[in-house]
């Protein structure tokens, strides 16, 4: 239990998707103009990461990693399908995003309307594929760990985009040098926020 809690805190603050690995930066910069839209995208990303990481974990454990297919028949224990993981992961992500979109549309139209165009775009958000690839890279061991890692990474991304959106709403009233306006100052702000987030690195979990 404590391990899971550690992993959760670690994936939110220490291994933050945006500040430590720069994942999902495209939509992070493009969408963070107002807090309202960022909340929508943040929720959608958290939701999709929470679902895709455990599913990709099962896929990795029972189909893709070396010898994983031995549950089908012992003769397959030398088979290594890990070179297929990129294409399998992205296929799973694209179809789950499609599925989530349909379910959300059917059962909670209010949430669907507030997420709007962001849901389909999430399929090509690097944070989602990054979550699955890091799950594979870190060799997480149980389904619980994978779920917690997915949820934590999602919440970390959510926090990051809300912080930068709030700052960008305020910075509109300040006198930024003209060539830095817009994208430039956002990069520098993200860098400064990243320095602040680095203070979490000292925490030993």
């Amino acid at each position: 239990m404590q391990d899971l809690l550690n992993l959760f805190v670690k994936s939110i603050f220490i291994d933050n998707m945006v500040f430590a690995y720069f994942l999902g930066m495209c939509s992070y910069i493009a969408v963070s103009k107002t807090v309202k839209t960022s909340v929508g995208l943040g929720i959608a990303v958290t939701f999709v990461l929470f679902i895709t990481v455990p599913v990709d974990f099962l896929l990795n454990k029972y189909v893709l990693s070396p010898g994983a297919l031995s549950w089908l028949s012992p003769s397959l224990k030398d088979l290594d399908l890990s070179f297929l993981s990129f294409i399998m992961f992205i296929a799973v992500i694209a179809s789950i995003v499609q599925l989530v979109e349909m379910i959300v549309e059917k059962f909670t139209p209010a949430l669907y309307n507030s997420l709007g165009i962001f849901l389909p775009l999430i399929a090509v958000n690097c944070a989602i594929l990054g979550g699955s690839l890091f799950m594979q890279e870190h060799e997480l061991e149980t389904l619980g760990e994978a779920t917690v890692f997915g949820l934590g990474s999602g919440i970390g991304w959510f926090l990051a985009i809300i912080v930068i959106a709030a700052i960008r709403e305020r910075i509109r009233y300040s006198n930024v040098p003209a060539p830095l306006r817009g994208v430039g100052i956002t990069f520098i702000l993200t860098g400064l926020l990243g320095i602040a987030f680095m203070s979490f690195m000292g925490i030993k979990l």
Binding site: F22, A178, L180, G184, I188, G191, G194, M198
Partner: peptide, 18 residues
């Protein structure tokens, strides 16, 4: 460290746009 990459991009944008 990671944050300096972002700040470097910011500075490149500054120079390019000036």
């Amino acid at each position: 460290l990671p944050p300096m990459a972002l700040i470097t991009v910011g500075l490149i944008i500054w120079i390019q746009r000036s």
